[in-house]
């Protein structure tokens, strides 16, 4: 008899989420200003000699699909880890200013210091993410009642505004950088080749392993500080490890696709609704939902306002802002 890990129909929810993700990948290869038939896509994917316009389009779409999957999965996971770590239902690296901090770090490296190597830029993104995370929590922690979810969200919004305007200021003084980062600054998976993935991947994977192995810790932290201590967790060290995973995931995702907000908010809440409160399920499911969300946001963004493209970061905000308000209005802010 297995007593553990039983809830209502988790297999169905996981199957549907994976199907939505797979459909998003297929759609991402076919849909765009230039609609392609499955035969054309298939031929371009399988025939290495094909070297026509369609092939170029498919190659570009493969790149942005990979970017969307990685950035979405990373942000979903980072959000889940952050919500568990801070027991804050608004824990999203976008809302809490971490993505904006990473973006500022990266643009500082490029525009101010002339760093051209992506691996070095990533370190700046990670440093920016870490500084932003610490800063926002320090500001929100001021005052008697400590870092409440609302204070964190307000501090995060303020930090995001500050970092973003600083990022813009750096970009507009440097036309060449602006050209590269104009869309990235809003959050996009288009226009950057698949070659940006390689240098970022080690950071993503390290962050993912640290976050996914933190499930038990997060489950225990969810019981409150006293019980967590009673159950043998050293709050400090454990939190540092999970916090590091958030920085790695959010920083790397931002390096890939720019500061995308709300994915880290929506994906874990959807996972929690579908699979219950155990982080053994929330964490992996947030990867799937986050990846699906960004992939679909990119697909819809390509066709919703022809002939232009709407950036992924704007599309996720369109989906995420109502969720944000629903969570705030529900009033059970401390319920995680």
């Amino acid at each position: 008899m297995t007593l553990t890990n039983r809830t209502t129909r988790p297999a169905l929810a996981v199957t549907i989420a994976l199907a939505v993700l797979a459909a998003g990948v297929v759609a991402s290869l076919h849909v765009g200003s230039r609609m392609l038939s499955p035969e054309v896509v298939w031929a371009a994917l399988t025939d290495p000699r094909a070297d026509d316009a369609d092939h170029a389009v498919v190659t570009a779409r493969v790149a942005r699909t990979v970017l969307a999957l990685l950035a979405g999965g990373a942000l979903g996971l980072a959000g889940a880890a952050m919500q568990g770590l801070t027991r804050n239902p608004l824990g999203d690296p976008g809302i809490l200013g971490i993505n904006a901090g990473a973006a500022l770090g990266m643009v500082t490296a490029v525009a101010l210091l002339g760093v051209t190597s992506l691996p070095v830029q990533i370190w700046f993104a990670l440093a920016g993410a870490a500084v932003a995370g610490v800063l926002v929590h320090a500001i929100a922690g001021l005052g008697r009642d400590g870092a409440t979810p609302i204070k964190l969200a307000v501090a995060g919004a303020a930090a995001t505004a500050g970092f973003t305007s600083w990022t813009s200021a750096l970009l507009i003084t440097d036309l060449q950088t602006l050209e590269t980062f104009r869309f990235w600054q809003v959050g996009t998976v288009g226009g950057r080749g698949v070659e940006v993935v390689g240098p970022v991947l080690p950071f993503l994977l390290t962050g993912a392993v640290l976050a996914l192995t933190g499930a038990r810790l997060l489950d225990v932290l969810a019981l409150g500080d006293d019980l967590a201590r009673g159950l043998g967790r050293r709050a400090g060290l454990d939190r540092l490890v999970v916090g590091l995973s958030v920085i790695l995931l959010a920083g790397a995702a931002t390096a890939l696709a720019g500061p995308i907000a709300f994915v880290g908010l929506v994906a874990p809440h959807a996972a929690r609704i579908l699979l219950g409160p155990s982080y053994f399920r929330i964490l992996p499911m947030s990867v799937v939902i986050g990846a699906a969300l960004v992939t679909w946001a990119d697909v819809v963004g390509r066709v919703i306002l022809p002939p232009t493209e709407v950036q992924v970061g704007i599309m996720t905000a369109v989906i995420g802002v109502p969720v944000f308000f629903a969570l705030v209005r529900r009033g059970r802010m401390g319920s995680l």
Binding site: L3, T4, N5, R6, T7, D219, V220, A222, L223, G224, D226, L227, R229, G230, L231, R272, G276, P277, S278, R332, S335, L336
Partner: peptide, 20 residues
């Protein structure tokens, strides 16, 4: 240790909680 008025995560099942 069982603290005063512990709060269970919303939606947690008995077996999940006890397993923690």
């Amino acid at each position: 240790l069982l603290p005063q008025n512990p709060v269970a995560p919303k939606g947690v099942t008995v077996v999940d909680l006890v397993g923690r």
